[in-house]
Design a protein around this nucleic acid. Structure first.
Lengths: 104, 104
DNA sequence: ATTATATATCGAGATTTCGCGATAAGTCAA
DNA sequence: TTGACTTATCGCGAAATCTCGATATATAAT
């Protein structure tokens, strides 16, 4: 974990909102996963387009935001066909919370 | 609490180090508090000059870093005479850790 | 009053981040 | 193969951050 990369990823309103929306994707986004084939489990994943629409920023901005959060460890992604689905990396986020509690 | 201000304050190596050193001031800094009058309790406070020397950055840089962390809530300060002492705001940091655990 | 010390503030150039539109790359449908 | 669609990457000007030296402010000592 590179804490500074995580802090930077969290230092932006839009990115913070995205992370919040992804806590309850079914509540904040239209039904997902139709394109994901049977046998593939990526529950809670939301495609870039839906996140972009909700965020109200440009496609390129949202794409790079998601990539930034992915590299920081906060998100994980799964590509199926032309779609890329993103969801929270809950295990990493738990570790990060523990890092804050004990190291900061 | 303005989480983004806190994340920004933590998005820098030097500031992160300062916050870490202040967890054990007696371990990382020469004896402190000689200038603080009797009856004033600011245990664990370290003056700007000592922090600056340890950080190896310029005086102005360290002063503004400390002010930034103060405004974010991470530090508290006490001025006596020409000295300003800074120490961690443990209560705020606990609240921040709890925010991370429950809201992020 | 003058001088010395500690800290804060100012101004500036270098670097990084922001957020966009344009375009490329990958995938699907016809 | 062509065209449509989704996402990623590129290039850019604007804005923010970084870090410094110079200077101002506040206090203390002589």
């Amino acid at each position: 974990m590179k804490p500074i990369d995580v802090f930077k990823a969290l230092s932006n309103d839009t990115r913070l909102h995205i992370l919040g929306w992804l806590k309850e994707p079914e509540k904040h986004f239209p039904a997902q996963g139709a394109h994901i084939p049977k046998g593939v489990d990526f529950a809670g994943g939301v495609c870039v387009g839906d996140i972009q629409e909700k965020a109200g920023a440009s496609q390129s901005t949202v794409s790079s935001y998601l990539n930034m959060m992915l590299k920081a460890g906060l998100l994980e992604s799964y590509r199926y066909g032309q779609w890329t689905y993103y969801r929270r990396n809950e295990e990493f986020i738990r570790q990060f919370a523990e890092y804050i509690r004990t190291e900061i």
